[in-house]
């Protein structure tokens, strides 16, 4: 049974948990220390006026159990921190960070990579949103993009600065979609980029995550290689030449055409003893392989 953990049950956590339940996930662990406040109701869709003052995890667990009879859902009324993150995340197939605590995203990112669990990190404030999914076994990750959390005075929260209600729904549900993709064999299409959501214009854009970061959390992605112009056997010749420029332990992110290249290149990499970390379709025409050089 697939188990997801949702950290934070606010503007993002409510639609993310709902989206995961809608996707047919088997088990949900909901983590949040707070109680429902009147000002939450505009965007935190699992709560009603009569719930004000009740623990968010209690209300959300009740609502989701009522709506999704096959779902096993439990709540933990705690704040995720460095001390309890491993215990909360262990056993999960995917973790979705929906907190308003920028430090939490770094903890979830780092512990997810340490335990080999894929994570989906989201943020939303005023009219801006972002979503970033990290494979449990390789970068690039959140720390490749942002080296440190913003200082407290810069990190205004939605309750203080305001947030566009429907933007929370878009970003939270996009987090649920990415989490579903990560646990259902579509990781190749979910990772390697950050999605920015412009709530004013309604525009969504994917930007590749940086390479060669020497990231302390994931080790970084050493290089990218686009072999879509080539056919076999040039696809593998190009791949081997690129791998030879890497040190053992470094990773290469390769995009190729679907069909013969996507059948042959991963098999050849495995035959030579390398670790194939991600292997799957990106879209109708393109296939992506992330490989770690072993020898």
């Amino acid at each position: 049974m697939t188990r997801a953990v949702v950290i934070g049950l606010g503007g993002l956590g409510c639609p993310a948990a709902l989206g995961l339940a809608e996707s047919g996930i088997g088990e949900l662990l909901l983590v949040d220390p707070d109680t429902v406040e009147l000002s939450n109701l505009q965007r935190q869709v699992l709560y009603r006026t009569a719930d004000v003052g009740r623990a968010k995890v209690e209300v959300a667990t009740q609502r989701l159990s009522e709506s999704f009879s096959g779902l096993r859902v439990e709540g933990r009324r705690v704040h995720l921190g460095a001390a309890n993150a491993r215990e909360l995340l262990r056993g999960a197939d995917v973790v979705v960070d929906c907190t308003d605590d920028p430090g939490s995203r770094f903890i979830v990112n780092d512990v997810g990579l340490e335990l080999g669990i894929p994570t989906v990190l989201g943020g939303v404030l005023q009219f801006d949103g972002l979503v970033l999914a990290v494979s449990g076994h390789s970068g690039p990750c959140f720390r490749c993009l942002f080296e440190v959390p913003p200082p407290t005075e810069e990190a205004r929260r939605c309750g203080e600065a305001g947030v566009l209600g429907p933007l929370c729904g878009v970003v939270g549900h996009l987090q649920a979609q990415r989490a579903w993709g990560l646990v259902s064999g579509h990781a190749a299409a979910q990772t390697g980029f950050v999605t920015t959501v412009d709530g004013l214009r309604g525009r969504i854009r994917d930007v590749p995550l940086p390479e060669a970061t020497d990231c302390p959390a994931c080790g970084g992605l050493a290089a990218r290689l686009d072999i879509t112009p080539y056919s076999c056997p040039m696809t593998y010749v190009r791949t081997r030449l690129a791998l030879e420029t890497l040190n053992p332990g470094q990773t290469l992110d390769i995009v190729m055409r679907r069909g013969e290249p996507s059948r042959n290149v991963p098999r050849n990499l495995l035959d030579e003893g390398h670790d194939v970390l991600i292997n799957g379709a990106v879209d109708d025409g393109r296939h992506r392989v992330v490989v770690r050089r072993v020898c």
Partner: peptide
Amino acid sequence: DEDIRFLENMDTALDAGSELQIIPAIAGG
């Protein structure tokens, strides 16, 4: 599509028509 930290940072050359995108860490949730 390139993070300037891994180009020439503030010295990264721009051509006419280049596009800069600013991506802040968004704290809220």
